[in-house]
Design a protein around this nucleic acid. Structure first.
Lengths: 327, 327
DNA sequence: GAGATTTGTACAAACGTTTGTATCTTTGCG
DNA sequence: CGCAAAGATACAAACGTTTGTACAAATCTC
């Protein structure tokens, strides 16, 4: 391994000059810089990051903490963040919490110990106590929260425009002529799902329709509960559902069709997340798309620029067969 | 930040003893160890990984290089690897190459500079020159290749059993009574696709059927080319296709149905990869499942145990409607 | 109880870089 | 030409840990 000391020795100068030359300090003469760069290339020098980090007290690594890497949403966020961070000279350290609070604590400890330059974080579902986060902030490590954020914590936050999205999705169902539009809401522990519910309600209120509790179906967002909710919605007289998740929407469609309900003629469905299967199934499913890649980029950007406001990434309604009479 | 020197000072001993105590050396008395551990906890000591790494000459980070993080396959590999590595005390640094050779070179340089403890790598499509890899190996950094491997390189390799899988998929189509079974092969630059082609061919040869070039359709693995291939297959008299990718199989199904060909009655299709949409579409698509999570775990395991053989992870045929008369 | 052996701790150097300060050289100006 | 200012490089300490060797104390052996 060749070091700056070796380069210095070969050139009869000191390591400090070499260091300055290679990190672009204006304190070294152009001529010497050239000689140094040439010699460095010749010897195949590569800066020892560990030594550099130790001396500087921080690393060029950004930690990204997500519940599960293999979820479509999160892997896209990571991908977006990685692209930008890499260009800026950072590397990305990944931790998954498996939705467990203690793993989130552990992950943040790991990142702290690695003296990361920053942390991009989406909380585990059960995460609540924020002492472990304040510990990071106390170490002056910039924190960017995304998707699942604690609004009482300082620092940048990147979220989807859930209210606006759900509002548009519901308005679309209205425009398609559906008369009684229910919603399959999700965990109310999450602000995202709350906002989707509020958006749905507001859209109906704004046109003077009922948006009472009798057509809100709370549950987790999986096909099984989607089936149940669809049956309840049917008996509550609904002819459309805005679902806060694609998988529950999928279950709803399955259940409705097996009852002979035609989609979209008799019943309209819009899901949320634009999972890849939504476009490929028959009938194809309308879905309110998140923009995970963009969220990753914006989170990375917030870190790079030192922003600390709340960034809202718009959602996009993808209209497909399940809610569109004219397709 | 509290250091071992501070702990040593507080206890009237030397940093070296503290260091040994905290890393479990047998050279320190039980009694002193206890005192040290207590004091460390009391002061909230956390080992400075950067200093430790510098001194030891390597880090506790394992680099994972993949073409694209957000592909279902790779994100699952990463997830599996991360789980195991994390338990073993390693962190995971992610790099994506975007299928570009120069990004692969860059990623490996980054990892080298970070003095990672090991590298888990799946090559970019265009990657061929292996000088950048030998550079890693020359630095005594253990390398585990997975999925897309260079067999002439030393070190562990984790691959799917593509031959066996394609053989079974084809045999299944035969068993279902299809008479002329073509294949939609992929990039022949990849050993995985090659093996799938060979497996398909062998299955047909073993029962005395023709497996000539006239029913092999080479192309990239996207819906568009799947459509074209399906049309060609139809005019070549095929009544079934084993597709080396799910997306091309999807295109094939679409094209066939729009020509009035019934699936599976008139034409059987089996895809490869078991993408999540395959189970959800109508008709649901049979697919030869990879096992990415398991591959990730096995790759991590190979690194942790220092194995360097070739590990073959079996594929599993998921039989669904697109190839099954009885469903 | 003296010497040999084991056990536990101290000393000190090293890992390779960065950076504040000091020193030396050059240039500019009157 | 002399002196000040600026420009370039050297010096040296520091970042916090690990680890080989040296040393001191305790235990054992005969």
């Amino acid at each position: 391994m060749v070091t700056i000391t070796q380069i210095a020795a070969a050139l009869g100068i000191t390591p400090s000059t070499v260091s300055r030359a290679l990190s672009g300090s204006p304190r070294v003469k152009e001529e010497t810089r050239l000689a140094i760069e040439q010699k460095a290339a010749e010897l195949g020098y590569e800066r020892n990051i560990m030594a550099s980090n130790l001396r500087k007290g921080r690393s060029d690594i950004v930690g990204v903490v997500v519940p599960r890497i293999h979820r479509e949403f999160f892997s896209n966020v990571i991908s977006g963040a990685e692209s930008l961070l890499n260009e800026a000279g950072y590397s990305v350290l990944i931790c998954q919490t498996h939705e467990r609070f203690e793993d989130e604590v552990k992950a943040l400890r790991t990142l702290r110990n690695n003296r990361v330059a920053g942390v991009l974080l989406s909380h585990a579902i059960g995460s609540s106590d924020s002492a472990h986060i304040r510990d990071i902030l106390g170490r002056d490590i910039p924190l960017v929260q995304f998707d699942r954020v604690f609004s009482d914590l300082p620092g940048a936050k990147v979220v989807s425009n859930n209210f606006q999205g759900a509002y548009e999705a519901t308005a679309h169902l209205v425009a398609q002529g559906y008369r009684r539009i229910g919603t399959l809401a999700g965990y109310m522990s999450s602000e995202a799902y709350e906002q989707r519910l509020v958006g749905w309600r507001q859209a109906l209120l704004d046109i003077g329709r009922s948006a009472g509790e009798e057509i809100v179906f709370y549950d987790t967002i999986v096909p099984e509960t989607g089936r149940e909710a669809a049956m309840k919605a049917l008996s509550a007289g609904c002819d459309a559902l805005y679902c806060a998740g694609d998988f529950s929407a999928l279950g709803a469609i399955e259940a409705l069709r097996s009852c002979g309900v035609r989609i979209p003629q008799d019943f309209g469905i819009v899901g949320t997340a634009n999972e890849s299967f939504t476009a490929l199934m028959t009938p194809s499913m309308s879905s309110l798309a998140l923009n995970p890649y963009e969220m990753g980029r914006r989170a990375a950007e917030a870190f790079l620029n030192g922003d600390d406001g709340t960034i809202v990434v718009p959602m996009e309604l993808k209209i497909r067969e399940s809610s569109n009479h004219s397709l």
